[in-house]
Structure formats: structure tokens, C-alpha cells
């Protein structure tokens, strides 16, 4: 039989026991609970960077514009396409004497023999004699040219545009085949001097006289653009259908300038 005192003592002892057990258990598992929490200052000082929020970054204060790409080279202002001459021609070209070299005469002969000049009846089919300048003056290599005499031809704006179109139309397929060597090559414009014979073939090798649009990043491609020009006129030649009477007039197509660019 347990007495009331014993029960009370047992209860107190049990609680005290439990308290002791708890104290010892906690003490064993984590002594740090008895210590003050770790001072945050120590963590920061030993580890330089704790997270994304940190000391002011050492960032360049250069304005953004100053970091423009070196590749953004200024593009040369594109030369405006040559205007067909808007001015009315005020003075007609003097009739040009025809002291042509033999080569021209020889080449003109097949043209003349090919041209079906309607009822013109120009009977100059001599096979080696001097060309009949008077009869040829104003004569074109176009069929159905029935005029026997013309006033001296002049290169009007419209005529220039037509000739340019005719040339472009014929060389475009060859131009389109030219392969771009690399990025930026399409900015290069080759300025070319062409000299043609009356039959539209090249009278002299294609002459590259200059370039536009060249910068540090595309300079390495200039030679290939030049190669392309030469390839174009080697492949798409001769140029046909150009008006004979505008061959060797002022601004005629005997010698002219061509600006070429790879397709951008």
C-alpha cells in the first residue's frame, strides 16, 4: 500500500527525473543551445561574398554609346544611281569623222551584213574595202532601220537608261551566279571601266578603277568582288542589241563606268 506521501514523493521524483533526463539529453545532443547564437559579424568577415546583394559593383561608367560595336563601321553613303541626263542637249555633237582602226571596220562588217536595213539598200558589202562612212553614219545595228541619214545621235537620259537596262538585263544572270565570299562583302562597290567593241565584246580587259564601301571588316573581300566583275563580263559577253549610233558619241557605250555590288 503506497502512502500519499510516497505518491507525492514519487511524482515529484518522477518529474525531477524527467527534468534531469531532459536536461542531460538536450545537453548531449546540442551543447550549442546553451551558447549564445553565433554572431553574424563573424560569418560576414570570414566569407567575402554572401549573396547577390553585395558591395557596389565595380562597373564601367562609360556611357553605353561609347561601347558601339567596332563592326558598326560607318557605311559609305551610297552613291546615287547615275541620273539619266535630264538636261536637254543643247548642242548636237558634231558629226564624228570615222577614221576607225581596221579592227573596228572588220567588226562592223559582219554587223552591217547582219542588219537587215529594210529598203535602205545600202550596198556596202565590200569585203575589205574602206567602209562607206557617209552611208554608215547614223546606221544602227538594229534591224528595220530604214533611215539612210540621221542627225548626229545624242545620248539622252532616256537612251542612257535604255542602254543601261539592256546591259544589266544581259549580265544579270552572270552577276547572280557570283558567290559572296563573306559577311560584309555586299557593302563593297567596285567601280569598273568597261570598253566595248561595236559588237558588244570587250575591247580591253575589265578595269577596276576603285572601290566604295570598304572598311576594316570587309577589306579582305575586295579581291573577290573584283574577281566577280571579271567573271561576269567573261561569261556574259558579248553584249548585244546596243544602238550602234550611240556607240561612240559623248556618253556613249563604247567606254563607260559600271558600279557593281554583290547582292545585299
Amino acid at each position: 500500500m503506497i502512502s500519499r506521501g510516497e505518491v507525492a514523493g514519487l511524482a515529484v521524483a518522477g518529474i525531477g527525473h524527467a527534468a534531469l533526463f531532459a536536461l542531460l539529453a538536450i545537453g548531449f545532443l546540442s551543447e550549442s543551445n546553451n551558447r549564445p547564437p553565433p554572431p553574424p559579424a563573424m560569418e560576414v568577415s570570414l566569407v567575402d561574398k554572401v549573396g547577390l546583394e553585395q558591395m557596389a559593383p565595380v562597373v564601367s561608367t562609360e556611357p553605353e554609346a561609347a561601347k558601339k560595336s567596332e563592326l558598326d563601321a560607318p557605311i559609305e553613303p551610297e552613291p546615287a544611281p547615275p541620273e539619266p541626263d535630264p538636261k536637254p542637249v543643247t548642242k548636237p555633237d558634231p558629226p564624228k569623222p570615222q577614221p576607225k582602226p581596221d579592227a573596228n571596220a572588220a567588226e562592223r562588217k559582219p554587223e552591217r551584213s547582219n542588219s537587215r536595213a529594210g529598203g535602205s539598200g545600202s550596198g556596202n558589202r565590200s569585203s575589205g574595202g574602206l567602209p562607206d562612212y557617209a552611208a554608215e553614219f547614223g546606221r544602227g545595228n538594229r534591224p528595220n532601220d530604214s533611215r539612210s541619214t540621221n542627225p548626229p545621235a545624242t545620248m539622252t537620259g532616256e537612251a542612257a537608261a535604255n542602254i543601261a537596262s539592256a546591259i544589266i538585263r544581259q549580265v544579270q544572270p552572270c552577276a547572280n551566279r557570283q558567290v559572296s565570299p563573306g559577311p560584309g562583302a555586299e557593302r563593297i562597290q567596285a567601280v569598273v571601266r568597261l570598253q566595248l567593241n561595236r559588237d558588244g565584246s570587250l575591247a580591253a580587259p575589265v578595269q577596276i578603277v576603285g572601290h566604295n564601301g570598304v572598311d576594316d571588316s570587309n577589306e579582305r573581300y575586295v579581291r573577290r568582288v573584283d574577281d566577280a566583275v571579271k567573271a561576269i563580263f567573261a561569261s556574259c559577253s558579248p553584249l548585244r542589241g546596243l544602238p550602234a549610233e550611240l556607240y561612240d558619241v559623248t556618253r556613249g557605250w563604247k567606254t563607260f563606268r559600271l558600279n557593281y555590288r554583290l547582292k545585299g
Binding site: 552613291p79 545620248m155 542612257a160 547572280n176 558567290v179 556618253r251 563606268r257 558600279n259 547582292k263
Partner: peptide, 23 residues
Amino acid sequence: QQAGGAQEDDELVVDLEGGQSAP
């Protein structure tokens, strides 16, 4: 000679553009 507007008064000028990005 670069500016196309004031064209030299002694020559025809033709502008040609063409090419391909292909092997």
C-alpha cells in the same frame, strides 16, 4: 566622283547588283 548626283558629264554609268550566298 562618288556622289552620284553630280554625274561626270562624260560617261555613261551603269549600276549593277547581283550575287548569291551559296557554296
